[in-house]
């Protein structure tokens, strides 16, 4: 069978469209399923109360708060460090064996399983630095896990800024830092935001790194300092889905739904920020 160019074009368009649809379908399916099963379990009480009666009743407020603390903690440690490291690597570092080694290490670190980070965080922060199982130790562990992704994303965003931008700025007598601040960062910020939010979303949903470093099995009272343990949504979800017999399924799904909404909200914030920065160009 032979087709002319126009038919082929239509065929290609159709096939590519179908593939895109096939990729999206499972995602929509998962989300729809979780909403359908989780929504009935949602209530004001569920969002604002601690769990009761062996976690079969009450809410998940401590876990929500714990996860928010962990996201904030991760952000505080990983964002400045990751972004500055990427700026150094792209803008300042000379091409030599040390730089190459660092870059290689970053690529490899992003492939390390999260449980390994969990063990490292346990040994390093909980035991060696004596932070105990705490928000601090958990945030640091998650931050270290997120760093390679944040660095890589930031690096790519910085490298995407055309060389000529830097050239003009430098030719006008700007210093390197002024060039980065006024010509490079404003243009790479959307990319940096996308990458970092992706990394933080992943951190928010991880169980393994927080397992030994911060997560509490059951802790209805709220943390008072960053040296306290907290409950966290992904670990709580794991606990109620596997460790507690006769757990009403709707509570598990409702917990999953809350976690998804939280991550979704984070993405929403980044979209809003991106639009805002694009309008302001950060000048």
């Amino acid at each position: 069978m032979k087709f002319d160019a126009k038919t082929r074009e239509k065929l290609a368009f159709f096939i590519l469209g179908m593939i895109a649809l096939i990729i999206i379908l499972p995602i929509i399916g998962v989300i729809a399923y979780i909403i359908k099963n989780g929504a009935p379990g949602l209530s004001w009480e569920f969002l604002t109360q601690p769990p009761r009666n062996g976690m079969k009743e009450g809410g998940i407020f401590p876990a929500i708060l714990g996860t928010i603390y962990l996201i904030l903690g991760t952000m505080v440690f990983s964002l400045p460090l990751g972004i500055l490291a990427a700026i150094y690597l792209v803008e300042y570092a000379r091409e030599n064996w040390l730089t190459r080694t660092i870059k290689l290490a970053i690529i490899n670190l992003s492939g390390v399983p999260s449980i390994v980070y969990g063990l490292f965080g346990f040994a390093m922060f909980v035991i060696f630095l004596k932070f105990g199982t705490s928000i601090l130790a958990g945030s640091l562990t998650l931050a270290i896990m997120s760093l390679p992704v944040i660095i890589t994303a930031t690096k790519e965003a910085l490298e995407a800024v055309p060389k000529s931008f830097r050239e003009i700025s430098l030719s006008l007598g700007a210093t390197k830092w002024q060039t980065i601040r006024y010509c490079v960062l404003p243009y790479s910020l959307p990319g940096i935001l996308t990458g970092t939010v992706l990394a933080l979303s992943r951190a928010a949903g991880e169980t393994a790194p927080i397992l030994f470093t911060v997560a509490a099995f059951y802790l209805p009272r709220l943390p008072r300092s960053m040296f306290d343990q907290v409950m966290a949504l992904p670990y709580h979800l794991y606990v109620i889905s596997t460790q507690i017999p006769n757990m009403p399924l709707s509570l598990s799904f409702a917990t999953a739904l809350v976690l998804i909404v939280l991550v979704f909200l984070m993405n929403l914030v980044s979209i809003i920020l991106r639009a805002y920065f694009r309008k302001k160009k950060l000048w």
């Binding site: 003009i168 030719s171 007598g173």
Partner: peptide, 13 residues
Amino acid sequence: DLISLRRKVGMVF
């Protein structure tokens, strides 16, 4: 001092 040099010697691309 490259900063004052480049101020004194401008460039158009």
